[in-house]
Design a protein around this nucleic acid. Sequence first.
DNA 1: ATGAAAGCGCTAACAC
DNA 2: GTGTTAGCGCTTTCAT
Lengths: 335, 335
Amino acid sequence: MSIREVAARAGVSPATVSRVFTQPRAVAAETRRRVMTAAEELQYAPHPAASSLARGRTGNLGIVVPDIANSFSATITKAVHRQARREGYALFVAGSDEFAEDEVSSARALAQQVDGLLLLSPRMSDEELTALGELAPVVVVNRRLDRIPAVLTNAQEATGHAVEHLHALGHRTAVYLAGPDNYADHVRSRGFRDACSRLGIATPELGRFEARYTAGVRAADLVLASGATAVVAYNDEIAAGVVNRLADRGIDVPGDISVIGFDDTGLAEMVTPRLTTVRIPATTAGTAAIEMLLDLVRGRGDEVHSPREVCGELVVRSSTGPAATTAVPARRSAP
Amino acid sequence: MSIREVAARAGVSPATVSRVFTQPRAVAAETRRRVMTAAEELQYAPHPAASSLARGRTGNLGIVVPDIANSFSATITKAVHRQARREGYALFVAGSDEFAEDEVSSARALAQQVDGLLLLSPRMSDEELTALGELAPVVVVNRRLDRIPAVLTNAQEATGHAVEHLHALGHRTAVYLAGPDNYADHVRSRGFRDACSRLGIATPELGRFEARYTAGVRAADLVLASGATAVVAYNDEIAAGVVNRLADRGIDVPGDISVIGFDDTGLAEMVTPRLTTVRIPATTAGTAAIEMLLDLVRGRGDEVHSPREVCGELVVRSSTGPAATTAVPARRSAP
DNA sequence: ATGAAAGCGCTAACAC
DNA sequence: GTGTTAGCGCTTTCAT
């Protein structure tokens, strides 16, 4: 009962008021002014639900992430929010806690009330993802699937650099700490194994670990037991846990063991020693994703773009160094 | 054009289909089954916008935080999201980047399309906040204002404990690194000054600093120049920056300078040395806030609850220790 | 440039 | 327990 009141007060029809708010230039300047004045006096603002219903679009976007409190997720969410807001969209956020079932139900629920949906490292099945794609325009980050537009963080090459870095430092046994079973982990794991086999580095693989600090703490002791002199962890949080736990056990990083993380979240610079890590440009990825999504939403969404890749980059800091000439301390007692 | 199709297929009226989805037990079991079957076959789901329009409520909640990527904000957001989802609400998230203007516009935009709005440490003016409160049910975290239901993190006492802790360790000059100009900072600053004056500790105050690691790095050198032997920082991120920068400058923490943070975010345990910090129960605060909001949304929102307080607690770790008997190294060159 | 009118898809009285 | 009916507030042809 509102656009009508404004209309009445301005002495025009509701249609005109509507036009003032949706296509201002279709209204005579003078009329527009009268309407605007009336609207302000009445503190009128268009009712979003009514507008959505009539127009068939909501002006909202949604993003589903594995973990709202995870630094990498949060960085992407922040970038996405910034762009969305700039383009006049509000943003729904949902977290799945790495639980495929919640991910699907959240995504489905959002799909109905957004113009486009962003999925970060989705774990749902291909079928479910495809089905979602029918419900609403969808862009995924870090997942490959035909017909679903994607932004992929390509850490293949950078992971190779990481391994070469370790090799050059004299390491001959390195362990990869696997994270959640997702695209990013696959790429990292594969890049790691490929490079290691190329360079003749032994590669026990440990995990999977949750992508969290506490999991890294736990992982550290397993690493130590493995006898490896170098660790590549799924992400910085795990790497941080490893580094700190090793310190607690009296192991020197990088003196005894070298550690490499992924993402280059803020954390990498905050732990001691500062982490050598493969930087993933999260903000770039988020921005790219939202741009693809908006293209899809606004343009004719017919043309399925090929995946957009953003590349990782090895950042060498202080958690990597020459391999210890003797075995690591934990095994020093051996003959 | 959808509830009608389901109705047709099930051989009932649209109203019955609507009932099946909104008050299932008002429909005969057999009819309900027929409708459900038809709905599934047609992959029908109620249109949220239409439903919102007709019912006058959206099933959505919103939260506006200072910084989406900040660990404390994210933890609260996560708790809020969890509760909201559990209660069947979807959640809008907006970040203001500590910018009052964006905060207001985001909040206003959301207010129209949610059933309730949560504001975390809002910086907008009292007037704007009050106005928002007229637009939609609003609960604030860390802001005091008449007639606006609030959750307050009370760190007054715990801050006192922090200062007593420092005093007991022999510190006689402590500096507070102020953060953003918000409720939490006021409480912390005031608690700090009160306790210091009670105990006869000199209290230069530095800042304000942004609530970020890099600001802490910058702050460290100012701290050093101040000659204080102890630092209480607005939050853990600033404290972490201080600790790391001091280490870079060859200052031992806690040997030369003691550092205390606030929040006990994950970061506190990740830096070296682990931070003594005033734990703020973010998850508790978030959960409490959403519960107040839902009470407001569902109950008769008339009764303005008095603010709910959640209390801080000093967690002593390794970044605090006995005051150096000599002045800090930076001043050691003095006679 | 503006108005009249017909919905968008769903819900909520109110009858039966 | 179910159907009929009248909107929710806005947008958008189609006239004028």
